[in-house]
Design a binder for these strands. Sequence first.
DNA 1: CTCTCAATCGAGAGTCATTCTAAACTGACC
DNA 2: GGTCAGTTTAGAATGACTCTCGATTGAGAG
Lengths: 162, 162
Amino acid sequence: MPAYETLLEKLRASGLKMTPQRLAILRQLADNDRHPTAQDVYDGMVAEQPTLSFATVYNALGALAEAGVCERLELGGTVLRFDPNLDPHDHAICDGCGSIRDVHADDDAPPGRAPAARAGARERKPRELTGFHVRRVERIFRGLCSACRRGGAPHDDHQPGR
Amino acid sequence: MPAYETLLEKLRASGLKMTPQRLAILRQLADNDRHPTAQDVYDGMVAEQPTLSFATVYNALGALAEAGVCERLELGGTVLRFDPNLDPHDHAICDGCGSIRDVHADDDAPPGRAPAARAGARERKPRELTGFHVRRVERIFRGLCSACRRGGAPHDDHQPGR
DNA sequence: CTCTCAATCGAGAGTCATTCTAAACTGACC
DNA sequence: GGTCAGTTTAGAATGACTCTCGATTGAGAG
Ligand SMILES: [Mn+2]
Ligand SMILES: [Mn+2]
Ligand SMILES: [Zn+2]
Ligand SMILES: [Zn+2]
């Protein structure tokens, strides 16, 4: 989860204009591992940017994603999410509360593979797939977070999906 | 890709009513590996079911999915897709034409793993992930299909996504 | 067969996330 | 201080789905 300075540097390098709205968005994304929606980002901004338009948040987030400052995530469900963490990684989504957690290949044993065989895990390059040229691979783990496994559906950080 | 008879049997076993609309949907799904949208299914039905309502297609597909006759796929993008193939498998989505291909763990070497280590590939059981109970794993390969790798964007079977 | 009723269907309105449109703004450069 | 591209804004538009509710209809009972 990149710090504000890091994101700022990327924005500067991208050639995009440094507007107050975009800087405020960077502040929202800095050190944020919660995969916020456009709504989340907007909510965190209206206080200091009272005239902010919703469309601006979408525009800016889209521009930042295209510039390689953050990533658009379409993890199923109806809402778009944004991730400042550009390291290749997977996501664990809780069916109970909808929370999304990063899963790095190193942290946890990938499913379908014996923990012993975890040798060349770091590898993430595109490869061939019988006539299909793979550019990137997305993996989603669905299940229950530790909190939801106890109580039925406690805090409910995110929307539980419809 | 299950045959009509197979789907019919599952529907019968589910306890759901066997209505003409649902049978027509089964006919659409039988031996279909194209992961059709509700629109696709509807389009294939209006000819023989002229009074068909769009909502009915959604209702019926939803009911069939819940009954375990087919599966709802949310592969990003804006549209819901349906898959009669219930074997655990992954999907390769072409960035060019939007076509979706099944990828079975046996067919192609999973990325991030040396082909030699393909031993216990069949394994697909839920497992622990440091505090997260994994119920199922989804994997999406994004890239270019063989057709799109040549010409820029030729036939365009599906919508290229926005 | 005929009856009965919960399950299902159909039409249209409603929802919601996202995108588009067009006008106003901003700031760098001449 | 004028010009212009890039941005922001409000609000309208889009599109995929979901809901509502009255009408219809399978499927088991008799
Ligand atoms: Mn992430
Ligand atoms: Mn499939
Ligand atoms: Zn949870
Ligand atoms: Zn293609």
